[in-house]
């Protein structure tokens, strides 16, 4: 169980006049994630998702607030090593050792997590096979394509069988087939009891994968619920049409009401009635368009 309580991070920041101020990247975030849950953190660029993950993974000290795994504060003395043994991290950016090959990068990770030789070799082979990188095991990481690097990041994070996996935009730049394979992998991990905490800009990904989704906006939690409940609350049916300022949307709980409204909008172009999706929820809550 991950419990986050009033988590806050502020960075020193220069305002428009060049005056030194503080900027709240994460502002009093509180939430809890259940063991074995796939939890999604959504939010526009700069909302504070990466900052949150960095604090959850002990890469950045919170300004205030508290994080506990299994009831123990991760920043209490002597906890660091226990926590780091249990977590795996797929960062938003590529952070391989540029002087090492694919296989050596994997091996370094395994050694740093104290895995025996036989165990680490088997595990590395298995994971590279899963992400289809076996052929490049002896290539320098610089030579991989963008998507291959993303796949390697995911494989590396899994070597030591973490109980909690943090993934910061894990499927960015992946082709649709690979993305679906990664989704299968995440579902499989969750079935095995791994807690997955991910951020994404692909609303479809959150909808497909996450039991619950939190929407973060300007460092604050603006909503937290299951994808189904979000849609239910907004209205399961969406009417959209070409308005004066681009596409406009209205949401309805009942199909009849949506149809009736659409009927009155005959003059408008491109009128359409469809099921509400999580993207509609996201846009309503943040005023941003998510996804690509």
């Amino acid at each position: 169980m991950i419990v986050i309580d009033k988590l806050t991070k502020s960075f020193p920041h220069k305002d428009k006049q060049g005056k030194q101020t503080e900027k709240l990247a994460v502002d009093g975030l509180s939430l809890a994630v259940r063991p074995g849950e796939v939890f999604g953190l959504l939010g526009p660029n700069g909302a504070g998702k990466t900052t949150t993950i960095r604090m959850l993974t002990m890469q950045l000290k919170p300004t205030a607030g508290c994080i506990a795994y299994g009831g123990r504060d991760i920043y209490s003395p002597g906890e660091a090593q226990r926590v780091k043994n249990r977590i795996g991290v797929v960062p938003q950016h590529v952070n391989f050792d540029q002087d090492l090959t694919v296989g050596e990068n994997m091996e370094l990770h395994a050694r740093l997590h104290h895995m025996e030789r036989a165990e680490r070799q088997a595990r590395i082979a298995e994971l590279l096979n899963y992400v289809e990188l076996t052929d490049v095991i002896n290539d320098n990481v610089r030579r991989l394509s963008g998507g291959m690097k993303r796949r390697l990041l995911i494989a590396r994070a899994l070597i030591h069988k973490p109980q909690i996996l943090f993934m910061d935009e894990p499927t960015v730049a992946l082709d649709p087939q690979v993305r679906r394979r990664i989704w299968d992998l995440v579902r499989g991990l969750a079935r095995d009891g791994v807690t997955v905490f991910l951020t994404t800009h692909y609303i479809e990904e959150a909808e497909n994968l996450c039991q619950r989704v939190a929407i973060l906006n300007k460092g604050k939690l603006s909503a937290l619920d299951t994808p189904a409940n979000f849609k239910e609350q907004l209205g399961k049916f969406t009417v959209e049409w070409d308005g004066e300022n681009g596409r406009e949307y209205r949401f309805f709980g009942e199909k009849e009401a949506a149809a009736e409204f659409a009927g009155k909008q005959e003059a408008a172009g491109g009128i359409l009635i469809r099921p509400t999706n999580l993207e509609d929820v996201f846009i309503e809550l943040t005023g941003h368009k998510g996804g690509l």
Partner: peptide
């Protein structure tokens, strides 16, 4: 460079080592 540019220092920060 590993700290600032490649960020590969993160591997060691995330690892359960002293």
């Amino acid at each position: 460079a590993e700290r600032i540019y490649h960020k590969s220092l993160e591997e060691y920060i995330l690892a359960p080592i002293k």
